[in-house]
């Protein structure tokens, strides 16, 4: 089934959303790089779930939200999105800052979501190492630091293979500005989050790339320790973008964890 695109109004902000698939609702929150659209892993997961992949306010083709100051604002916003879109109690997958957002949502309202998948989420201050200062590097430099090995990324050509159009450059700049707005200080983390994570008893899968150069893999262990019902899976030869770097393996992990429409 082909996915469709809709703009869903939440609190006066138009949220550009990819929707597709069949089965229980699965909400997918993207990272700082923006919504990459209907990529391979989403198509695979959509065989068993109805995927809702909204673009955060201030990103891509969604409306502005200059009034937002941090990821907690984005988390409250996406809890509202769940209501506005009528998703009931969806499963939630979040990557990078989307993972941080998902974690914040779960601490705010654990009953609003079913199972939780956190993919290389920022949000915690690393006990060892540092989160890469992504705003200090140019987008091309960043791209090479984000993935382990471009040659192994199946969708590399589709996603990054050609020079961006002016409209795409404009969207990339807008994405980066909104990401800066939300995560500048404290940089990419919430010092209070660790105190709230123990509230989240939802079954949680944490996925990390062993070679993640953006967020230290040790942060995965921190999340696992703080969340009462979480498992951590570390993918070898994988950087900060597991859903793009290893789409088949990643989709399989998610499907196995969520179980599909027969699971109760």
């Amino acid at each position: 089934m082909r996915p469709r695109e809709e703009t869903i109004s939440v609190g006066g902000v138009g949220v550009h959303t990819w929707i597709g698939g069949q089965g229980d609702a699965l909400l997918v929150l993207h990272g700082a790089g923006g919504n990459r659209g209907w990529t391979r892993w989403l198509a695979q997961v959509a065989e068993r779930f109805t995927v809702w992949a909204p673009t955060h306010p201030g990103f891509g083709r969604s409306g502005d939200a200059d009034w937002m100051d941090g990821i907690d604002d984005l988390a409250r916003f996406h809890l509202w999105f769940i209501d506005a879109a009528g998703l009931g109690r969806p499963h939630l997958v979040g990557h990078s800052i989307g993972g941080w957002t998902a974690a914040e949502m779960a601490t705010m309202s654990p009953g609003s979501i079913d199972r939780l998948v956190l993919v290389a989420p920022v949000g915690l201050k690393p006990e060892k190492g540092e989160i890469l200062d992504v705003f200090y590097y140019s987008p091309p430099q960043l791209l090479t630091m984000t993935v382990h090995d471009p040659k192994t990324v199946p969708e590399w050509d589709e996603l990054y293979g050609r020079a961006p159009t002016p409209a795409e450059v404009e969207i990339a700049t807008r994405n980066r500005e909104m990401a800066a707005r939300l995560t500048w200080k404290p940089y990419m983390h919430n010092p209070r989050l660790a105190h709230f994570l123990p509230r989240v008893t939802n079954p949680t899968l944490i996925v990390w790339g062993r070679e993640d150069r953006v967020v230290p893999v040790e942060c995965g262990e921190q999340y696992r320790r703080l969340l009462p019902n979480a498992d951590l899976t570390v993918l070898e030869r994988c950087g900060h973008l597991p859903p793009v770097e290893q789409p088949e393996i990643f989709a399989r992990l998610v499907l196995d964890f969520l179980g599909g429409h027969n699971r109760r």
């Binding site: 705003f135 200090y136 590097y137 140019s138 700049t173 980066r176 500005e177 800066a180 707005r181």
Partner: peptide, 9 residues
Amino acid sequence: PTEYFAPVG
């Protein structure tokens, strides 16, 4: 680098 003098935004 550009980002030092003109960070995003």
